[in-house]
């Protein structure tokens, strides 16, 4: 009996190896639900409400993708992943796509055998200090105690940056964002450092946000990107172009409100191709002609998603910054749909 189990396991492993490159698209369609890896909870980006309905900036990507592939934005199974389990969950096939504020880095892209298909949020590491400290630039933080989350890229960035600027700091190690806020507010550290988006969200939740300032220096590049497994390029294309469809929609002024009207009447050939009126781009990636239309209908175009989840109208109050369209001085630039 033991042996048969062993054999079955081995057989399974071989099978798994063979099928890992099999089409994710077919699997998702057969399953009729998209397994989307998300954060276990990050304000504005991905968080379940009291009823378990997921919302947020990253979650909107999952919804758009499910709408494009399965025709229904609700056909998503959100798999909450921690910092430790996220990449393994993706490479082991537990999730089909990872939209979990993960920084696109060389090592992750190559050594971990992931494909980062598109950056959905350009972030960077910043500092927050109490206004009373009288510091206006991070270069004045010589000798400061800094609250820093262990085991993240921010920890390494911090060490690099202080060394490069030839100043010293004392790290106060923390485990989670909630603990960091608490330590910082209790005065255990002079400055709190994490991604600028996280700092803004944290500051917004303080009792007196105005007592704290976010310093202007951004000391690292954190392109938070959507990741898929290495080796299934067709699936990677679908994810990439679904995201680009959202970006392009904003570029061309297609919103969830005027989507139908644009699809019917737009004279712009690019819009016609995007929304499937001409050329049938969907067929080239194994989907139908309306895929992009459904993706945009799910939660609106990139700008709408941004404004609804983390933008200036929300309590998190992030401005578009680098995430504005290229025409507005940002980095959001969808390649042409043709």
């Amino acid at each position: 009996m033991k042996r048969s189990v062993l054999l079955a396991t081995l057989g399974g492993a071989v099978l798994a190896g063979g099928m890992a490159s099999a089409a994710t698209l077919d699997e998702v369609k057969a399953r009729d639900v998209l397994n989307c890896g998300v954060n276990t909870g990050l304000a504005g980006f991905a968080a379940p409400d009291a009823n378990g309905n997921w919302q947020g900036f990253d979650v909107a990507v999952c919804k758009a993708l499910a709408a494009a592939v399965l025709g229904d934005a609700t056909k998503v199974k959100y798999v909450p992943t921690t910092g430790q389990t996220r990449f393994t969950a993706l490479s082991s096939g537990e999730v089909d796509v990872l939209a979990r504020n993960s920084t696109w880095s060389f090592q992750r892209d190559t050594d971990l055998k992931l494909d980062f298909v598109a950056t959905n949020y350009y972030d960077g590491q910043g500092f927050m200090v109490p206004r009373a400290l009288g510091v206006t630039s991070a270069t004045e933080l010589d000798g400061a105690t800094v609250c820093i989350q262990t085991g993240t890229t921010t920890e390494l960035n911090l060490a690099d940056w202080f060394r490069a600027n030839n100043i010293t700091y004392q790290p106060v190690n923390i485990d989670s964002n909630a603990e960091g806020e608490q330590q910082y507010l209790a005065g255990a550290c002079d400055a709190y450092t994490t991604d600028a988006s996280g700092l803004a969200a944290t500051r917004a939740a303080f009792a007196n946000p105005d007592d704290h300032i976010i310093l202007p220096e951004i000391i690292s590049k954190e392109p938070l990107a959507i990741a898929v497994r290495h080796g299934d390029n067709e699936w990677g294309d679908i994810v990439r172009w679904t995201f680009f469809a959202l970006v392009a929609a904003e570029d061309y002024g297609i919103t969830s409100a005027n989507l139908e009207e644009q699809a019917a009447n737009s004279q712009n050939p690019e819009v016609q191709r995007l929304l499937g009126k001409t050329d049938d781009l969907g067929a080239m990636i194994g989907l139908d002609a309306d895929w992009a239309k459904r993706a945009i209908a799910a939660s609106g175009n990139y700008g709408e998603i941004f404004n609804a989840t983390i933008g200036e109208a929300t309590p998190i109050k992030l401005n578009r910054g680098l995430n504005a369209q290229w025409t507005q001085g940002g980095l959001m630039y969808a390649p042409p749909f043709r």
């Binding site: 954060n39 276990t40 909870g41 990050l42 304000a43 504005g44 991905a46 968080a47 379940p48 409400d49 909450p80 989670s176 964002n177 909630a178 806020e181 969200a201 944290t202 917004a204 939740a205 303080f206 009792a207 929300t314 309590p315 998190i316």
Partner: peptide, 11 residues
């Protein structure tokens, strides 16, 4: 943590 991730209860 997931409760804290909702904007209403962050903090």
């Amino acid at each position: 943590d997931s409760v804290r991730a909702s904007i209403a209860w962050k903090g």
